[in-house]
Amino acid sequence: MSDWKPKRFWKTTAVTEAETGYTVQLDGRPVRTPAKAALIMPSRQLAELVAAEWDAQEDQVDPGTMPATRGANAAIDKVVPQHAEVADMLAEYGDSDLLCYRADAPVELVDQQAAAWDPLLDWAADTYGARLEPRTGVIHAPQDPEAVARLRREVHALDAFQLAAFSDLVSLSGSLVIGFAATRDAQPIEQLWDHSRLDEIWQAKLWGKDEEAEAHAALKKASFLNAKRFFDSVTIGD
């Protein structure tokens, strides 16, 4: 695989208003997505995040350091043309949510799961009228179809930019409920991430940390936090 990266070719970066939102210009020329669509964003806050990423590039452009730009590109190029499909895919997490699958032993882990995850399930029930029930073991057991349907409607209500961020919040945590809790600030974002890794944290305390696994988890956490920042920058608006 080639390590080639495009070189920085511009001197100035600026946020400008567009007809339907905000865009970023490099030397007065608007940035486009990989699919050559106009990079029009719904809020100045998001456009400023994207502009800061472009401005921070030095000799070579490194997409790995540009999460907001990647998120905006994904929203326009991938989510907009298939919004319903993306929403349906994410809504499916509600029927197999991480928070619902519990250990039967040891008692300390059982208690930790209940203490961390039950309040989130209660929150979802209170907020969305969708009660997801825990079960013991890892074998799939369907949830109440009406509860899943209510959560599905909430996913479909998100716009393309929100859904692009929500996709990472859900897929990285393995939990539709944690994804919603992150968007609503139901708990601090770092605490929500730790809840999603409760089993892994337990195993690390029991058997010791694996450096490679910890490094991989750190990358996932960074992506989770970036997704939250992206969602907030879209939702706050101008």
Rank of each mutant, 00 (worst) to 15 (best):
K5H: 10
A14N: 05
Y22K: 01
Q25I: 09
V31T: 02
R32E: 15
A37T: 04
P42L: 03
E48I: 00
A51G: 14
A52R: 14
W54T: 02
D59Y: 04
Q60N: 05
Q60F: 14
P67F: 04
P67L: 10
A68V: 01
R70S: 10
N73Y: 08
Q82C: 06
H83V: 03
V86F: 01
L90W: 05
G94P: 08
L98T: 13
C100L: 10
Y101S: 11
V107Y: 01
E108A: 15
D111S: 12
Q113M: 07
P119S: 10
L121V: 12
W123P: 06
D126Q: 13
Y128L: 09
L132C: 06
E133T: 15
R135Y: 12
I139N: 07
A141R: 10
A141S: 12
A149E: 11
R150F: 07
R150T: 04
H156Q: 14
Q162W: 00
A165L: 03
A165Y: 00
D168V: 04
V177K: 00
I178Y: 05
A181Y: 05
E190I: 01
Q191S: 14
Q191V: 14
L192C: 08
L192V: 01
W193F: 15
L198Q: 10
E200Y: 03
I201F: 10
K205F: 02
L206V: 05
G208P: 05
L219H: 10
L219G: 06
S223M: 02
F224N: 07
N226M: 06
A227D: 09
D232F: 04
V234A: 09
G237N: 05
G237Q: 05
